Simulated scan of single mutants.
Amino acid sequence: MRKEMIGLPIVGMVMAEVAQVGLMIMGKAAMSHGMPNFVFVFYSNALASLILLPASFLFHRSHRPPLTFSILCWFFLLGLLGCFAQISGYAGIYYSSPTLATAMLNLIPGLTFILAVAFRMETLNLRSSTSQAKSLGTIVSIAGAFIVTFYKGPSLLMAPSHSSSPHLLLGQQSNWVIGGFLLAADCVFASAWLIVQASVLKKFPAELFVVFYYCFFVTLQSGIICLIMGGDLSAWSFKPDVRLVAVIYSAVFGSAFQLGVSTWCMHRTGPVFVSMFKPLGIVVSVVIGVIFLGDTFFLGSLVGAIVIVTGFYSVMWGKAKEGKLDVQTQGMMSESSSQKVALLSNNTGEP
């Protein structure tokens, strides 16, 4: 039973990460065809809200927690963090690439782990092997992300149209530096978003409703930003058609599916477990880039991917062992309580 409980969130998070990589590629395509990042965020979240509203009522038709003003305030904060994360993240993708974006997202586990420890959602005991594995795995994953981002090395697989000129550092392009800073800001907002979402789910345990209200408030907030920024009305057009395809993909697979699955997993496993699947994104993006986009696969990508996966499994080992210890502790506490009850019964003369 325990393996099934862990296995379903693992499968769900792998699917969610694949969907997110596709979302980055589609978002890059829309912005490359003249759609601003904040307009893309508005459209995708508005369509996702329309999809999630009937789905949430259908999925939670038997049990819906009461909606209070305090919960609405939490939803507003969740939407605000998500709005800033999406706008800065898509801007970073526009100035760089989906591959760099997935690499930078590996900063989220470390930031989330630090915030989770600060808010006492996770325990940190450096004498414990589980805490050591999670801490070391987080550091190793972040190191692997930086290897993929800043070190290329010689090319291993290259499309025919690409020239073989191995550059060692990507920092030679100023746009990548701007994109890196924007993506780093995205990671900070996303880490805070994970912590707030975990708190919201404790107060309002209805996953699809949480995702709906999140998308709804992001729509309102990004709409206000669109009005403030103004700009050309042609930016709101769905011509060329790639803009419409990108918005539909973002709403269906990016917001409705990816957020719905990750929220469901978070409700059952916690924010650190969800964030630790971010290293898989860089592996997926490299595979998609080489096979479908004609990108070059460099030695740095291979080394970084190996380091990332090593750190990922280190954290998964720590989480799995921690879960077994929790089950054993609960069993011992239950057995101890039963013994106390039996002892009390004997002392009172009951059979």
Rank of each mutant, 00 (worst) to 15 (best):
L107K: 08
L23I: 06
S97M: 10
L8S: 14
T130D: 07
N45S: 09
L81E: 10
A133T: 00
T149A: 03
A29P: 07
F59R: 01
L58M: 09
N45L: 06
M13A: 13
I93H: 10
L8E: 13
I51M: 07
N37F: 07
Y90C: 09
G110N: 08
I93V: 15
A118N: 05
I147H: 00
H33Y: 10
A29W: 12
F75K: 01
T123V: 04
G137N: 01
F57C: 01
P109G: 09
P65W: 12
V14G: 11
I71P: 14
L80Y: 11
T138G: 02
S56P: 04
V41G: 03
L107P: 06
R120L: 01
Q86V: 07
R61E: 00
G92S: 11
F38A: 11
A19P: 05
W74H: 15
N106Y: 13
H60S: 04
A143D: 00
A46M: 11
T149V: 01
A85F: 05
L23A: 08
M35D: 04
A143S: 03
S62K: 11
Y95L: 12
M26R: 07
S128P: 00
A91E: 14
G34D: 05
F69S: 15
A46S: 09
M104P: 08
M15W: 09
L58A: 10
A48M: 03
S135Q: 00
S129F: 07
I10K: 12
K152W: 01
V11D: 12
F38D: 11
L77E: 12
F75G: 02
T149I: 01
W74T: 14
P109T: 08
F40P: 08
L50E: 00
N106M: 13
I10Y: 15
W74Y: 15
K28S: 08
F59N: 00
S135K: 01
Q86M: 13
F146T: 03
G110V: 07
S129R: 09
F38V: 14
T149N: 01
R61N: 01
A103M: 13
R64T: 12
N45Y: 06
A91H: 11
F69Q: 15
